[in-house]
Nucleic acid binder design. Sequence first.
DNA 1: AACAAACCGGATGATATAGTCCGGTTGCTA
DNA 2: TAGCAACCGGACTATATCATCCGGTTTGTT
Lengths: 183, 183
Amino acid sequence: MFSARRPNRGPSAAAENRAALIAAAREVFAADGYDAPLTSIARAAGVGQGSLYRHFPDRVSLALAVFEDGVREIEVLAAEPGTTLDDMLALMTERAITSTAFIDVVSASADARLIHVRGRVSELLEGLLSEAREAGRVREHVTADDLVTAIGMIAALLAKIPADTRRETADRAWLLLRKGIDV
Amino acid sequence: MFSARRPNRGPSAAAENRAALIAAAREVFAADGYDAPLTSIARAAGVGQGSLYRHFPDRVSLALAVFEDGVREIEVLAAEPGTTLDDMLALMTERAITSTAFIDVVSASADARLIHVRGRVSELLEGLLSEAREAGRVREHVTADDLVTAIGMIAALLAKIPADTRRETADRAWLLLRKGIDV
DNA sequence: AACAAACCGGATGATATAGTCCGGTTGCTA
DNA sequence: TAGCAACCGGACTATATCATCCGGTTTGTT
């Protein structure tokens, strides 16, 4: 049969290797969290350390490449006419379940590029929250900051438990947060 | 003046060194979390690596020594007649604010000794929760597991933010959890 | 075919941390 | 005061990870 080998070297392999790194990083971040060793990502991509650092000089630029789509997805959803706060929280929770690293990217406070992302997301939440409040769907005292806190809280918890229990735990946590504990 | 030096060596220093290690560990765990380097604890105690590992063969035994008092405090509070679920949650939150490592000890699921501690705490919560439910102070659907989840969630969040903002964030998070987001 | 630019990958150095080992110190006891 | 058991501290080994560097490979061009 025609050789299926990927050259992996030479000028023509650059784009392929870059794509392989992003794909591998997506899986490794999902499995091991945002702090996973970059070495393991290079290995998973079938690529040397050098190529990883050449394409992505640091962890943040790799993470941005990996979660670019996810962030865009959030922006698109926010831009759609009928979108409610519920829809948005559901989407973000889904992403947190799939990869807790996503929330690290969206709610980080260390790197300037990530802070920028967080700012954009926060604005979107603010808009949806205002609508929900005016429609009488949420309590008056709830702020956009509260929502960021709530999502961060759930994501932080999910990061500490086995992946196969995350969906159940996330659902339960949202139920608590939404309905409250007190009578 | 009379020499204030602590011998630090020889048979008579053992107890003092052990106490110094516990005190240093308490501070380092509080400042840097449960995963702080043991090396930094030895340094803070003014004691060599060897002494640290001699007194406490691993991280868990050191953590148990450090938080022994905290756990006993919880048990004592639970045993007192008038104690409510509120009181207990307040105490545990206070401990989580002071040292997020405390919650790592109380809610850990890796080491057998720590699981034992979690089991005891969980039982205590169960008892107080039943009372509160019968008194109509909490919603029917809330379980002891939910409470553990809630505390773990808050502690996980606190561990990711600066120490001087923890109290405020913890209060806000409990308000959300108790009153709920939805109308 | 020969060459050069672009690119690859693993060896390598640097750093951080866990855990061990042993020469040296201390103070009790006879 | 001499011996010894208990104990100390820091050097040392092992391991993991980040980040860099350079000899070697590939491909398009002439």
